[in-house]
Each structure stands twice: as C-alpha cells, then as structure tokens.
C-alpha cells in the first residue's frame, strides 16, 4: 500500500444519505489521504453523485460526519463552512459554467470575489488557467458557443481558479470521446503532481479508474452501503466480492441459482 504515512485529508464517518425517509446509502466510512486520487465508483444510480454533494456542502447528511483535516464540516458555523468550501474546486457533470458570462468572466468571478488582484492581474490569471486546460484564446467565448468537451475543460479551469486543496470531479469523462476522456485523465494526474492537491472523482469509467485511481470506495445500490474500498488495481486482484469483480472486469454478474 502506498501513502499510508500521508496525513488523512478527508474522513467520512458513518455517513447516511437520504431524501426524506428514502435512504440512498448508509454507514459509509472511508479516509482520503492528501495527494490521493480517490475514486467513488459503483453502478448507475447507487448514489455516487449524491455522496459528492454531501462532501462539498450542497446537501446535509441524514446522519454521520464529514471531516476535513479533522474539522467536522457540517457542525461548524456557516461562515466557516463557506471558508472551507472556498478551498474546494468542483467540476460539475455538465460543467455548470454560468451561461450568461464569457469563459473569462466565469473564471474571473471567484478571483474577483476572493482575491485583491487588479483587473489586469485577474485577466492574466484567467489566461493562464485557460491555457492550462488547453483553451488559450477562448476568453471571450460564451459557454454555449463551445463543445461539450471544451465546456468541461473550461469548468476545470474555473474549479482551479483559486488553487484549491481538493478538486472534486463529477463524472469527468461522461459524454466525452475516448481520446478527450484520456486527455482529461492525464490533466487530472498532471494537476495532482504539480499542485499536490487531493482529488476526488465520481466515475464508472473503468479506463479512468485504473489509470488514475489510488484509492476508492465502491457503493452498492442493492445493499445500500459500501462493499469495498482501496486501490482499484489491488481490488481487481484481491477482491472476492462478485459484484466488485464483475464491475471491475466488466463481466456479466454470475448467474444466481434460482
């Protein structure tokens, strides 16, 4: 196992997620270490994106805790939680760029809100972020004028605007062709290497899982809890759980004898 010596960055304890009385997942327990690329995986509809919404502060847990560097995220004051959220960068499934603003304005907004940079400095940082994701020169384009893959990358540029400690990705490769998806994966790895941020990715793309994941949690929609966790490559070799195995090997689940 690599990196057990690194400090725990995010810890989820006994987390139960529910919409009203409808429980989505219960008793989730896992730790994410600094510098991990942590994969949240599982079949469609098992609550991966919902788990992400709980971790980034969009939905309060029905029960349980989320800790960031030992601080209980959901029990601190709203102000403090907002300050913690500012250390997150989030890439939403559809990019979620503000459609009434240009790419430059999208990326500039967090900078204008939370830094004292002058307008010309902001412009420089914006250009830098856009060039990091390969979109140099697209400053004055509106989100509706660029392709889906470009929108994702622009969303990533915005997520990185404030040099976050933790980057969250909600299905980064959904809707991308294999090559664009691969490029995005490379970009994610590159960012982790160069910025040293912790990365949390919701995905069910096997190629991505094995290419970038260093730690993971596997959510199961039938038992409504996590049934595995750890380095995905090790999981592939050591896990004996038929659901995990069939997911990771893309096999049809073994026939249940009726």
């Amino acid at each position: 196992m690599s990196g057990l010596d690194r400090e725990v960055h995010i810890e989820v304890q006994d987390l139960t997620m529910a919409y009203g009385s409808f429980v989505i997942q219960r008793d989730l327990n896992f730790k994410v270490r600094r510098g991990d690329v942590f994969i949240i995986m599982g079949g469609s509809g098992c609550g991966k994106s919902t788990l992400l919404r709980h971790m980034v502060g969009l939905k309060e847990p029905a029960r349980g805790k989320v800790y960031y560097e030992g601080v209980d995220f959901w029990s601190v004051e709203v102000k403090e939680r907002e300050a913690m959220m500012r250390r997150f960068g989030i890439l939403y499934q559809s990019g979620a760029l503000w459609s009434s603003m240009t790419l430059a304005e999208n990326i500039a907004l967090p900078l204008e809100e939370y830094t004292d940079l002058s307008p010309s400095e902001v412009r420089e940082v914006v250009s830098l972020k856009l060039s990091l994701v390969g979109l140099a020169g697209f400053e004055e384009f509106y989100p509706s004028e660029i392709s889906g893959g470009m929108r994702k990358r622009a969303g990533l540029a915005r997520a990185m605007a404030l040099d976050p400690d933790i980057l969250f990705f909600d299905e980064p490769s959904a809707g991308l062709d294999p090559i664009s998806a691969r490029r995005l994966d490379d970009l994610i790895l590159e960012l982790r290497e160069s910025l040293g941020s912790t990365i949390v990715v919701v995905t069910h793309e096997l190629a991505s899982i094995f290419a970038i994941g260093t730690n993971s949690v596997f959510l199961d929609s039938e038992t409504k809890t996590m049934i595995a966790g750890g380095d995905p490559r090790e999981l592939l070799e050591t896990s004996h759980d038929p659901k995990v195995r069939s997911f990771l090997t893309r096999d049809a689940p073994e026939e249940r004898s009726d």
Partner: peptide, 9 residues
C-alpha cells in the same frame, strides 16, 4: 449553475 455559486461560497 446555482450549485456552482453555492460551492464557491
């Protein structure tokens, strides 16, 4: 887009 605003604080 509103989620994106919220998570930026």
């Amino acid at each position: 887009e509103i989620d994106a605003l919220r998570t930026l604080g």
